[in-house]
């Protein structure tokens, strides 16, 4: 479904991604783990067209998307929930969700999806007319994921959904991610610092260090790998 072939991405003169290649198949949950500053967020931004790669190729459903604008990429069904959630602070919860469906024209299905979201997260229904900026961190994360779901993505990119949340909320969020993957067959690409939880949820994982992919294997194998244990699982 998504293929990165030797992409190199720069911020000015600084190279953030070096020859990154990876592949995500339809229906999978794939995770990318690594330390702070390894290039995980940049990988997602390169896929979404916010920081386009200087060289290499990004293929989504067989089509090169590395030269496309981000709105074109979204319209193809590739959506991202960025790190730090980026809720529109002065739009209401409902308006934030409407923005998720910005490129969709099928009004009837949009309101159906809105009801699905409110079933999935009843708290968002309670707060539907409240400005997004007044929600708690966990509620904002739920809203951010829901906003992306409103686009009916084929591939969902999630950047650090556990960041700054209480353990019980994190578990809830991960349950939802697995549920979304199972119920609607949405492919998930999950970037996480919480390697333990991410690898448990994922089919396969990639490990990133200093802008390079250094290891890839199934989630289980990576969990029991000695190097991964030492570096990312604190064991």
């Amino acid at each position: 479904m998504l293929k990165l072939k030797n992409i190199n991405t720069y911020y000015g003169n600084i190279q953030a991604l070096k020859d990154v290649s990876l592949e995500i198949k339809e229906g999978e949950i794939i995770t990318l783990i690594g330390a702070n500053g390894a290039g995980k967020t940049t990988t997602l931004m390169s896929i979404s067209g916010i920081v386009p790669p200087k060289s290499g190729e990004v293929l989504f459903m067989g089509k090169p998307i590395n030269d496309m604008t981000s709105e074109k990429i979204v319209s193809m069904g590739l959506c991202q929930v960025p790190e730090g959630r980026h809720i529109f602070p002065h739009l209401t919860v409902t308006e934030n969700l409407d923005m998720g469906a910005f490129l969709r024209k099928d009004k009837a299905n949009i309101s159906k999806d809105l009801n699905y979201i409110f079933d999935l997260f009843p708290i968002l229904n309670e707060r539907r007319n409240q400005p997004g900026g007044t929600l708690s961190g966990g509620e904002q994360q739920m809203l951010a994921i829901s906003r992306a779901l409103m686009a009916r993505p084929k591939l969902l990119l999630l950047d650090e959904p556990s960041l700054g949340l209480a353990p019980i909320i994190i578990r809830q969020i991960f349950e939802i991610i697995k549920k979304i993957n199972k119920d609607s067959g949405t492919t998930v690409f999950l970037v996480e610092q919480n390697a333990n939880l991410a690898l448990k949820a994922a089919d396969r994982g990639y490990v990133m260090e200093n802008g390079r992919i250094t290891m890839t294997d199934t989630g289980e194998n990576l969990l029991s790998n000695e190097d991964v244990k030492n570096a990312y699982l604190g064991m």
Partner: peptide, 23 residues
């Protein structure tokens, strides 16, 4: 309007507006 919401969204968070498909 849709356009008005997109304007407000862009004013509040330009990168996120791009990520939901606003030009």
């Amino acid at each position: 309007t849709r356009l008005g919401k997109a304007m407000r969204a862009t004013a509040q968070d330009r990168m996120m507006a791009r990520l939901v498909g606003v030009s």
